[in-house]
Every structure is written in C-alpha cells, then in structure tokens.
Amino acid sequence: MSSQPGSISSRSDSGSLEVIVPDGETAIRWASHGYPSSLAKWHYHPQIEIHLIREGSGQFMAGDGLMPFEAGHVALIGSNLPHNWISDIRPGERLTHRDILCHVRPQTIRLLSSAFPETAGFEQVLRRALHAVVLSGESAHQVADLLVAMGDHEESRRVADLVAMLAVFEHAPEAESRTLVTPEYNPMVAVGAEDGINAAISYISDHLDEVSLQDAAEAAAMSASTFSRFFKRVAGIGFADFVRSLRIGRACRLLSCTDMPIARIQRMSGYANASNFNRRFLEETSLTPSAYRKNHSAR
C-alpha cells in the first residue's frame, strides 16, 4: 500500500503485508480513494475492514470467493483475509470516488465487548468476517450511510459510527447478509503470493479481450503450468473461470450503460463466436444478452 496519511507499507520476507497505522492516537482509520489506485490491489492486513463501493462495477475477490459488485456494494473483511475489487473501466477512465473504508483491529472490538457486554454479539461478527460478509438491501444502505458520514465526524463520534455499523452486521436479516469465502479456505496461501497475483490480475484486466494463459503466466514470471496451479491455489478459482467472469462483467456493463450493438460488445468482451458468447453469458447471468439489456433498460 502506498504511503498515505495514517498508513505505511511494509514488506516482510514471507510476502507483502499491508501495515495500517491509524492517524494520531486513534484506533479507527477512515479513508477514501479512487480507481485505478496503488491502494486498489490484492492484499491483506491484520485489521478488519468495512468497505463501500460508490461507483462502477466489476468483480470482488476475497479468499477463494469471487462475485460481481455494483455501486452500493458493502463488505466486511476479516483479519488477514486477502481481498480486491477489480473495476471494469475504459482505457484512461478513472473512478474518482470509488472507495470508502475504515479499519480497526479485531482486538479493539474484543476490548469493547469485554467492557460492554451489550456488544458481545460482535464476536460472531468477527468470526463471520473471516469469510467476508457482504450486505444487501436496507442493511447495506444503513452501513453505507454510516461509513460516508464517518468521514465528516470527530474522532469520538467515529467510535459511535463503528459500533452502529457492527450492530447492523450483527442484526442484518439472513436474506441481506451472506459470506463469500468457503469454510475450507486457508489464508496462509496468500503469504508471499501478492506480487504474482497482482501482476497477473493487472495483465488480465488490461488485455481482457485477448488474454491467454501463456500471456498471463509470462506477466507473473512463471511457466503456464506453474501459473495455472498457483492461480487456482491462491485465488480459489481457475484462470479460465476468472477470465470468463471478468469478460461477462464487462459485457454486462456495456449492455447496461451503452447502446452498442451486441455483436460489438461480444468482440470487446473477448468472444469471437456469438454462440459461445451467448452460452457463457447465460451461464453467468441466467439471461441472454438481449434479455439482460431489456431488463436493465426497464429499471
């Protein structure tokens, strides 16, 4: 992570670790940034993270999980769980206000719970955070509003904001709260893997319409067979499945935000064959490209 007020970056012998230092004497760090950014990468840190995406769409990676996101996406990331949000953007495009987030050490939350038994339920929130909690519906709206407001509040008020957000995660209805990471995931697979994964993700994103396994492997300085095993082990998803998810995500953005002909969107999304594009799109979204565009236009 690049140096910012309240944060420093440190590299250990076993791999990259983002070291986050709150401003001054505070326990809570609040931050915002755009995309692309040196801060937006596959990484992990000891602090839990509450994160809001304010603009754009793409794919959210956490542990061995992958899911699409849109503006309004809210997630809670557990301690040392690798994560990343990959936005699909046009060449030269910048999302100026994409991310708002706050960090706090889980030990701080446990100290709070030991002093205030009323917050004992936060321990379960911390356990679920190890599997990346994603909110939707009214619960996501509540946390988003609190996280945005936190940026304008004094330090003492931010403590109240944090408690309120954790309470939303604790009491969110089952239909509005899900975890992304499988119970079997071991975060130790991330140690020492950051450079290779980030090099591969960057190359794939920049060459999505024509990327190959061999090209991505060369970008990560590995043989194709080694890279294929490495990517599956660390990211929890096979290379081909990852590329397909990003390509269909691009197609969804173009279908919903432009009037481009579907044939052109197909080519821009890396598919030379219309039937293959339609089949993959249907597998990922349960809709045909034309039905997806019609549904989005009706909103």
Rank of each mutant, 00 (worst) to 15 (best):
S2Q: 11
I8N: 13
R11C: 08
R11D: 05
S14Y: 14
E18C: 08
D23K: 15
E25I: 11
A27M: 04
I28F: 05
S32Q: 08
S37K: 04
S37A: 14
W42R: 05
H43P: 00
I48Y: 00
I50M: 12
I50V: 13
L52R: 09
E55K: 14
E70N: 12
H73A: 13
L76A: 09
I77S: 07
S79R: 01
N80L: 08
S87L: 04
G92W: 01
T96N: 12
F116N: 04
F116E: 03
P117K: 15
L130R: 09
H131R: 15
H131S: 15
V134G: 05
A144H: 09
V159I: 10
V159F: 14
A167E: 01
P173H: 08
P183C: 03
M188K: 11
D195V: 11
A199I: 07
I201Y: 11
Y203V: 08
I204Y: 02
I204C: 04
S205D: 14
H207A: 14
V211F: 05
Q214S: 15
A217N: 06
A219N: 01
A219F: 02
A224N: 10
A224G: 07
S225W: 04
S228G: 05
G236S: 07
G236I: 14
I237N: 04
D241L: 14
F242P: 00
V243A: 03
R244S: 04
L246D: 00
R247K: 11
I248F: 09
A251Y: 00
R253Q: 02
M260K: 09
I262F: 04
R264G: 02
R264T: 13
S275R: 00
F277I: 03
N278C: 09
T285S: 13
T288V: 08
N295G: 08
